[in-house]
Lab assay of single mutants.
Amino acid sequence: LTVEVTLDGRRIELHGLSEEAHEILRHALERNADDKEIKKILEELRK
Rank of each mutant, 00 (worst) to 15 (best):
D34K: 07
I41G: 00
A33K: 04
E23H: 14
E13C: 13
D35N: 08
E13F: 15
E19A: 10
L45N: 02
H22R: 11
T6W: 14
G16T: 04
E44M: 15
E20T: 10
L7Y: 03
V5Q: 02
G9F: 01
H27K: 14
N32P: 03
E44R: 14
L7V: 09
L17D: 00
N32Y: 10
H27A: 14
E19K: 13
L1Q: 07
D8G: 11
R46E: 11
K36L: 13
L42T: 01
R10H: 10
D8Y: 03
K39R: 13
K36V: 13
E30Y: 10
G9W: 03
E23A: 14
K47N: 11
K40I: 09
E23F: 11
G16Q: 05
K40Q: 12
E23N: 13
L14G: 01
E37S: 06
I38Y: 02
N32S: 09
K40Y: 12
D34S: 12
I24R: 14
S18K: 04
A21C: 07
L14Y: 06
S18P: 06
H22P: 01
L14H: 01
L17F: 06
L42Y: 04
K40R: 12
L42M: 07
T2A: 06
D8N: 13
T2M: 10
H27G: 11
A21I: 07
A33V: 06
K36I: 12
E4F: 13
K39F: 14
A28T: 02
V5T: 02
H22D: 05
R11G: 04
I24C: 06
L42D: 00
K47C: 14
E44P: 01
A21S: 07
A21P: 00
L7T: 03
D35S: 12
R31L: 07
L29C: 04
R11Q: 08
H22T: 10
R26K: 09
L14V: 12
E19F: 14
R31A: 07
D34H: 07
H15N: 08
R10Q: 13
I12D: 01
I24T: 09
R46N: 12
R26Y: 04
G16Y: 07
E30Q: 14
D34I: 05
V3R: 03
L1G: 07
E13H: 12
E19R: 11
E20Y: 14
R26S: 08
L17T: 01
T6S: 07
V3C: 07
E43R: 14
L14S: 01
E19L: 13
S18E: 03
K47E: 09
E13T: 15
K47Q: 12
R11D: 04
L14A: 03
E13N: 07
E4D: 05
K40M: 13
I24D: 03
D8K: 05
L1S: 06
L1T: 06
K36D: 13
E19P: 12
S18Q: 03
E30D: 11
R31I: 07
H22C: 11
D34P: 13
L17M: 06
R11V: 13
H22G: 09
E43W: 13
D34Y: 05
G16S: 06
D35G: 08
L7S: 03
V5N: 02
H15W: 15
R26N: 07
I24K: 11
N32L: 10
L29H: 02
E30M: 15
K39P: 01
H27S: 14
E37A: 07
K36S: 14
R10M: 14
L7R: 02
L29P: 00
L45P: 00
L1W: 10
L14P: 01
H15G: 07
L14D: 01
K36Y: 13
K39E: 08
E19D: 10
V5R: 02
E37R: 03
H15F: 14
V5Y: 02
H27R: 15
H22F: 15
E44L: 14
T2G: 05
K40P: 00
I41W: 03
R11F: 06
I41V: 05
H22W: 15
R31E: 05
L25Y: 02
I12N: 02
K39S: 09
I12R: 03
E44W: 15
H15R: 11
S18F: 02
L45F: 12
E13Y: 15
E30P: 00
E13P: 03
A28D: 00
L14C: 05
L25T: 00
V5P: 01
R31N: 09
I12K: 02
E23D: 08
R46A: 13
A21G: 07
A21R: 02
K39M: 14
L7W: 03
R31P: 01
E37W: 07
H22K: 10
I24N: 06
E37N: 03
L29Y: 05
V3H: 04
A21W: 14
A33R: 05
K36R: 12
L29G: 01
L14I: 15
K47L: 15
L25V: 06
E13K: 13
D35A: 09
E37C: 04
V3Q: 04
E37I: 08
L1M: 10
E43V: 10
S18M: 03
G16W: 10
L25E: 00
E37P: 00
R46Y: 15
E20C: 06
D34R: 05
V3I: 15
I41H: 01
K47F: 15
L7M: 07
T6N: 07
K47M: 15
K39Q: 10
L29F: 10
L7H: 03
L29Q: 04
R11A: 05
V5A: 02
T2D: 04
E23K: 14
I41E: 00
R31T: 06
G16M: 06
T6V: 14
D35H: 08
K47Y: 15
A28V: 04
G9R: 02
T6L: 12
G16A: 05
K40S: 12
G16P: 02
K40V: 09
E4Q: 07
I38G: 00
R10G: 06
G9M: 02
I38P: 00
H27Y: 09
R11Y: 06
K40N: 08
R11W: 06
R11S: 05
I24W: 10
K40H: 11
L42K: 00
I41S: 00
G9V: 02
L45S: 02
R11C: 08
R31K: 07
H22I: 15
I41A: 01
V3N: 03
E20R: 11
L25G: 00
D8H: 08
V3P: 03
E44T: 14
H22N: 08
L42V: 08
L25P: 00
E30W: 08
E4H: 10
D34E: 08
R26P: 00
L17H: 01
K40E: 11
E43M: 15
L29D: 01
R31Q: 07
E44I: 14
E13L: 15
I12T: 04
A33Q: 04
R10W: 09
E4C: 15
